[in-house]
Design a protein around this nucleic acid. Structure first.
Length: 564
RNA sequence: UGGGGCGUCGGCAAGCGGUUAAGCCACCGGUUUUUGGUGCCGGUAUUCGUAGGUUCGAAUCCUACCGCCCCAGCCA
């Protein structure tokens, strides 16, 4: 359970549900549904909808159906169904017995269409797509009625039967609702209900040469399943009158209602299927599950947890105002979750050598290191310490600016879990002037990282023993885009791609315990960030790490402010 | 010149005629700390798109205006 059970304040949909419950509107039932079209991969925007629909069902002891809106066989495939189910499960939700396909309702839908024809509420039209568009009018001009609008019920019935029998070519006829060609709402200007498509369907094969449209299928599917609250995004608001019309005229037993909320937008991110597809197709990313993608599979591979995503969904709320969430909130949610759970380990990403001149030659000590200060249950492990270590390059400065309290000449710092050391001298590459080695002396009385005299050391740094370190590739991921709203500047979102969205460190130096890290495991690399073992490139004994998110970095902020 | 929505702090978002206008993220201080992490404490909207009106009292009701989003697939 997440903290949305806290009933602090209700969102507008919860308010409606509680009113309905109080009025016994649907007999006290709450049934929602998540209705993806199996024509693409799920992304974080879908996660909002999934958490909303399944979360509501959970909160109000109802149920949430997984229903595929598979009414357009040209775009739909089994592959997507598999990934959708994996993603919904991964997020922590279960549809139980309630998995449905709109295509399972084709026969019933057909009968509802016949009913409409018999009521004189639908007709078969022979206008071409172009003509229909022309007859529809414009936003400001009313449409005109099709000549076929007055076709007799008998003839409509016969034609519709022939459509089903496969006697016509694609586009020859279409079944239309007879509503109002003068409506200010374009959706009500005799919308198409059925079109002819002589195409293989991924589930019904060649059974049907005609397929129902979304606006006809969706309300009736909801009704057939006993859905009480059909929750969709804002752009369907204009379709609600049509949704209601279909329910009204088809007279199904249950009368579901549609409600609309604002879809998720995230800054520094693109979410549209078209744009995500382009990133993949044109090779800007490494596939749909590239850790920089906002797809569920991408963020999963990045190391985000389902708990973090659900927490995020709770925090962003549900409302009707178009909004853009700051991606910093998502990052906060993962940090919050991982801080509590991720084992701490030491890893040096950009190493320089640290030599302890007064440490006994060849000595190795195995020191105790707690696994997680936030969780005493996590226990501890032993890590090897020696006279030759690696530390992070930017943990040493020859001429430190004020407020820098890491290692510098003559300065004493703590090596985490180990000893106090004081820097004495440096070695540089004569060519480049780059520091290659820092020499220091340690205080043997500071074993474990403290002394009896209680003297204070300001800085604590992570390290790994040079002789014991293992090497592994580490992928440092950052936002895929540098602009808050990609594409706003030039009209082409590709122009805002972040050239540094991935930096690969071929040979980071890691403490040896990481050798056997398994795919999917998540660690905090102390003082650096959260990293997970990549599920696709890691091999047993050869882990590859992906950076999920950095730790908050006050020093980086300070440095920037001071212009260092 | 059509229809449907939405406008409360930098970003989300509560608020539903009487509140000092919640909370979260971000930001800024301080404090704790063997992670410049975490935790803890504190600061940040005299004001709710604007202008009028109703009322003892308005972010909440009314009117007008302004701004933004969506709709002209035989896609969903």
């Amino acid at each position: 359970m997440d903290n949305n059970e806290k009933s602090a304040s209700l969102n507008f949909i919860e308010r409606i549900i509680e009113e309905d419950l109080a009025n016994n509107k649907h007999g006290g039932r709450v049934v929602t549904r998540f209705p993806p079209e199996p024509n693409g991969y799920l992304h974080i925007g879908h996660a909002k909808s999934i958490c909303l629909n399944f979360g509501l069902a959970r909160k109000y002891s109802g149920r949430c159906h997984l229903r595929y809106d598979d009414t357009n066989p040209e775009k739909e495939e089994q592959e997507y169904i598999d990934s959708i189910e994996e993603d919904v499960r991964w997020l922590g939700f279960d549809w139980g017995e309630h998995k449905y396909f709109a295509s399972d309702y084709f026969e019933e839908l057909y009968q509802f269409a016949v009913k409409l024809i018999k009521k004189g509420k639908a007709y078969v039209d022979s206008l071409s797509p172009e003509e229909i568009r022309e007859y529809r009018g414009t936003l400001t001009k009313p449409g005109r009625e099709s000549p076929d609008r007055s076709r007799s019920i008998e003839e409509n019935l016969e034609l519709f039967e022939k459509m089903r029998a496969g006697e016509f070519e694609d586009g020859e006829y279409v079944l239309r609702a007879k509503i109002d060609m003068a409506s200010g709402n374009l959706n009500m200007r005799d919308p198409a209900l059925y079109r002819i498509k002589r195409v293989q369907h991924h589930r019904t094969g060649e059974t049907w040469p005609i397929y129902p449209m979304y606006d006809f299928t969706h309300p009736l599917s909801d009704a057939l399943e006993g859905v009480t609250h059909s929750i969709c995004t804002l752009e369907f608001e204009d379709h609600r009158p049509l949704y209601d019309w279909v329910i009204q005229e088809c007279e199904p037993e249950y009368r579901p209602q549609q409600y609309e909320f604002a879809r998720l937008n995230l800054n520094y991110t693109v979410m549209s299927k078209r744009k995500l597809l382009r990133l993949v197709k044109e090779g800007y990313v490494d596939g749909w599950d590239d850790p920089r993608m906002p797809t569920i599979s991408g963020i999963r591979r990045r190391g985000y947890t389902p708990q973090a995503i659900r927490d995020f969904a709770d925090r962003i709320g549900v409302a009707k105002a178009n909004s853009t969430i700051d991606i910093a909130l998502l990052e906060h949610c993962v940090r919050d979750d991982l801080n509590a759970r991720a084992p701490r380990v030491m890893a040096v990403l950009d190493p320089i050598k640290l030599v302890i001149d007064n440490y006994p030659q060849g000595q190795v000590e195995w020191l105790e290191a707690e696994n997680n200060p936030e969780d005493p249950q996590a226990g501890s492990r032993k890590i090897p310490f020696s006279g030759q270590l690696y530390i992070e390059r930017d943990d040493f400065m020859e001429e430190p600016p004020k407020k820098f309290f890491r290692l510098a000449p003559g300065r004493e710092i703590r090596l985490k879990h180990a000893y106090y050391v004081t820097a004495t001298s440096v070695e540089k590459d004569p060519q480049t002037g780059e520091i290659t080695t820092v020499h220091c002396e340690y205080d043997p009385h500071s074993r474990g990282g403290w002394t009896e005299d209680g003297r204070k050391v300001k800085g604590t740094c992570h390290w790994v023993s040079a002789a014991h370190a293992i090497e592994a590739p580490v992928n440092l991921y950052d936002h895929l885009f540098t602009a808050e709203n990609p594409g706003e500047r030039t009209g082409n979102f590709i122009d805002d791609l972040n050239p540094d969205s991935l930096k690969v460190i071929q040979k980071a130096k890691l403490e040896p315990s990481l050798q056997e890290a398994e795919a999917g495991q998540i660690f905090q690399f102390m003082r650096k960030g959260y990293f997970c073992v990549d599920g696709t490139h890691s091999r047993p004994g050869q882990p590859v790490f992906n950076r999920t998110v950095t730790l908050k970095d006050t020093w980086a902020k300070l440095k920037k402010k001071m212009g260092v």
